[in-house]
Design a protein around this nucleic acid. Sequence first.
DNA 1: CATGAATGAGTGTTCATTCAT
DNA 2: TATGAATGAACACTCATTCAT
Lengths: 206, 206, 206, 206
Amino acid sequence: MAKKSKKKSKPDSYYKILDALEALIEEKNFSEIKWNDLAAKADVNAGLIYRYYKDLKNVLFVLFEKTTLDQVQEVQFGLRGIEGAFNKLRKFIWIQLHDTVAHRARGRMQLLEARAHKSYFDSPAYEASRKYVSLLRGIIEEGIETGEIRDDLPVNDIIRIILGAIEHTMMPALLFNLEAGSDNEIDRQADTICKLLFPGLKKSPL
Amino acid sequence: MAKKSKKKSKPDSYYKILDALEALIEEKNFSEIKWNDLAAKADVNAGLIYRYYKDLKNVLFVLFEKTTLDQVQEVQFGLRGIEGAFNKLRKFIWIQLHDTVAHRARGRMQLLEARAHKSYFDSPAYEASRKYVSLLRGIIEEGIETGEIRDDLPVNDIIRIILGAIEHTMMPALLFNLEAGSDNEIDRQADTICKLLFPGLKKSPL
Amino acid sequence: MAKKSKKKSKPDSYYKILDALEALIEEKNFSEIKWNDLAAKADVNAGLIYRYYKDLKNVLFVLFEKTTLDQVQEVQFGLRGIEGAFNKLRKFIWIQLHDTVAHRARGRMQLLEARAHKSYFDSPAYEASRKYVSLLRGIIEEGIETGEIRDDLPVNDIIRIILGAIEHTMMPALLFNLEAGSDNEIDRQADTICKLLFPGLKKSPL
Amino acid sequence: MAKKSKKKSKPDSYYKILDALEALIEEKNFSEIKWNDLAAKADVNAGLIYRYYKDLKNVLFVLFEKTTLDQVQEVQFGLRGIEGAFNKLRKFIWIQLHDTVAHRARGRMQLLEARAHKSYFDSPAYEASRKYVSLLRGIIEEGIETGEIRDDLPVNDIIRIILGAIEHTMMPALLFNLEAGSDNEIDRQADTICKLLFPGLKKSPL
DNA sequence: CATGAATGAGTGTTCATTCAT
DNA sequence: TATGAATGAACACTCATTCAT
């Protein structure tokens, strides 16, 4: 039903192309990916891609938006039922690290590819990305309000520091095709981030 | 005499090409830079670039290596006469932030361009980069030895967190051609990083 | 129906390119022929040649193979109904001489161009060439079996001598754009070859 | 004395270039040889080659002329003291086969490279080559006069057949870097040529 | 909706050639 | 006589893009 429903859903090829790009991004540099590579991987005629996407960056951003929105949902879901800013923060960090290992393409787009293109910052992909960041902002602001987190530092700075710590920790797994550190190792890395950052975040008791 | 010395130094053009790339990188994405752009900027024949560098990525890596080695020296110099791991760390962070603003090309190469290329990790540029990181490692290890810094966390993880925090803090200045935040703002950001990270790094008193 | 048959035949351009090369080879040295020359002659986009043939030598070898296989058929046809090794040999020589005049491109490829390229000897063109030589070998071996041709000389040496005699006789016509000697002259040359070689080939009566 | 004599002999470099080309021709196709290859092999500045030679073909032809004139002398010397057209012819064939093995570059130039260039036929190299052929013509004509060789065939045709037989017999050694057949094998090939050609050349007794 | 064929503008690369020293 | 540096024009090759079917 979903398939044949009136609301004309995009044809199969549209999605095959997105999937193909995701697969390719795991293999190589975006700038090395050509129309023909993508067409071949998607098992679709190269000319057809034009019907759906203006250019390759466009495919990239659409894919990026889609995966990032997925990610937002996952995180939202993961945070449910958790109380306390620091517990949420720990979960956030933990999800992000594990997630990157599970969806390398997404990570590569976020950390390595998208930023390099100016047009990214005007794309819906960037919007999605901001939505993701706002999840983190929510946690921080809540923590400040509840008095758990110190209030003498600019929230934006805090966010960048946390994200930077997370991103840089994930970097090796994205760059090298490390068969992604074991779960244990990832847990340890998440733990280290928390141990390092939480003391500085805590509102010091009067 | 210096000019006529035996050690045949590279011809002028060799360096003009490096300078030209540095200028271009500040303007645009590396992947958008073409041989002809570079040749024009360097006021040099395009074929000549080929003679010296074989391909564009090579120019990138040579430039990256050179600037990174410069940076190593600057940091080494900046750290002289400073006592205590935390004081050194604060200086390190401070230099790095200010430095990035002063040499945007260098920052863009490090954070946005180089990593995207597999061959980077086999290049001398990567070696230089490791040398830079080892400066930070030195500070951390020294601090652990003197008992200033806690010894229950993997040094590599610590390093990544610190670098990530720094990098992500610099990111906006690199991405958008912000007329680079005022000195005051940078000082504030450096301060925030320290305030956030230092408590977690300190060896807690028994 | 032939046109619309299932077996997807190569597009027209594929063959136009071959024809164009054949024409060009009659005019000039292969090493002087450029992609653009060929494209212009074939009235085809230069990039298209690349799609079908990868490089110019490849076009050369494909053309060579094709024409040589044609030649094999012509010779096989021409030899039909002829009895006796020497009669066949005479016919073989005669065909070859006349043929070279009629298809100068083919001769130039065989005698002047192909051999100069190492890769030729790994190409299907070389295989075709061997097929052609084996026609001559068949005649010789048959003659030896029937006792017409002496059996005290290595067949390979005999073949080379005969081919060499033929080739060198054709050479002037190929090198200079002689409006190819009259039929009479060619007949005379064929005759000379036979007169010179046959006595030495005959098995001497006890 | 020779070196510093008044008759200004060409400078060393002039000859080094020739030697270098000879060495290169043994290694690869002439059309693959570049100015820089030659300069490197000769251990001479590329620009210098211009002083002596107009272009690469020019070097080729000068070298060709030189080696061919050497060859003429060798053959003339080798024929001395031999009586009878057939004995001379046998010697001629024998020298030529052995010689090719000893000087592969020369053979490659004659059989594979020079002919492909139109300008060859206007060069002194071609003149030298004709001188060489005239040695063979001399033998044939002498044989006709003395009544040893039949007089009913065009001398030019005869010459081509003999040369063709010789050339084609040498071909494999030139094409493939066969460690040149043993002396025995070459002797056998020379013998085969004689056995095949001589009967047809002999004037038949009334 | 989908494709094979074709195109042309752009890009990297090569290399003979010149020139100041 | 000899060289290193530099050049420019030609050339091969790539690839996004269009179009008839």
